[in-house]
Simulated assay, not measured.
Amino acid sequence: MDKNKNSGITGAGKVVTSTIGNTVGGLTNTVGGVVGAASRGIRETVTGATGGLGKPLGDGVTNIGTGVEGGAASVAKGVKDAGE
């Protein structure tokens, strides 16, 4: 009897959930990308200022930032998928 499952309240709910999911997912990706880029910039600054002595510290900061970036991308994908 229900030929169109995306009509009425159900359809409106899906549009709202999808929009919120895509918005939150996009923002999460942005924040993750900023953290990742900032950590790579810090690595270059620390390594440039201290030479080889600061390389382990710079690499550590980058690894943390890259981890946050990857985690944020994973969360963003999950949020977007849930919105669908």
Score class of each variant (00 low, 15 high):
Val46Tyr: 13
Gly26Thr: 05
Thr28Leu: 06
Val35Thr: 14
Ile64Ala: 13
Ala82Arg: 03
Gly21Val: 09
Thr62Val: 02
Val61Ala: 12
Ser7His: 01
Val15Phe: 03
Gly78Phe: 03
Val15Thr: 12
Thr66Asn: 10
Lys14Pro: 00
Asp59Phe: 01
Thr17Pro: 01
Gly65Lys: 09
Val46Met: 10
Asn6Lys: 11
Gly71Trp: 07
Val46Ser: 08
Lys3Phe: 14
Gly11Gln: 10
Val35Arg: 10
Ala73Val: 15
Glu44Gly: 15
Gly58Ser: 02
Thr17His: 05
Arg43His: 12
Gly33Asn: 05
Lys55Cys: 05
Val68Phe: 09
Gly13Ile: 13
Ser7Gly: 06
Val34Arg: 01
Asn22Gln: 03
Ser18Phe: 08
Thr47Phe: 04
Thr47Arg: 07
Thr50Ala: 04
Gly58Trp: 00
Thr47Gly: 09
Gly36Asn: 09
Ile20Met: 03
Leu57Pro: 06
Pro56Leu: 11
Gly25Tyr: 07
Ile20Cys: 12
Glu84Gly: 13
Glu69Tyr: 12
Pro56Cys: 09
Glu44Asp: 14
Ala82His: 07
Pro56Asp: 07
Thr19Ser: 11
Gly11Pro: 08
Gly32Phe: 04
Thr47His: 08
Gly58Cys: 00
Thr28Met: 08
Ser74Tyr: 13
Val24Ile: 04
Glu44Cys: 09
Gly48Pro: 09
Val16Arg: 01
Gly51Ala: 12
Gly60Phe: 06
Val34Glu: 07
Val46Ile: 15
Val16Glu: 05
Thr45Pro: 03
Leu57Met: 10
Gly21Cys: 04
Thr30Lys: 05
Ala37Arg: 14
Thr23Val: 06
Ala49His: 06
Gly48Asp: 11
Ala73Met: 15
Asp59Ile: 15
Gly33Ser: 04
Leu53Ala: 15
Val79Arg: 07
Lys80Gln: 14
Gly32Ala: 06
Ala49Asp: 14
Thr30Leu: 06
Ile9Glu: 03
Val34Lys: 11
Lys55Arg: 11
Val46Gly: 14
Arg43Thr: 15
Arg40Ala: 15
Ala12Ser: 01
Lys5Cys: 03
Gly33Met: 05
Gly8Ser: 10
Gly11Val: 08
Ala72Arg: 11
Met1Trp: 10
Ala12Asn: 00
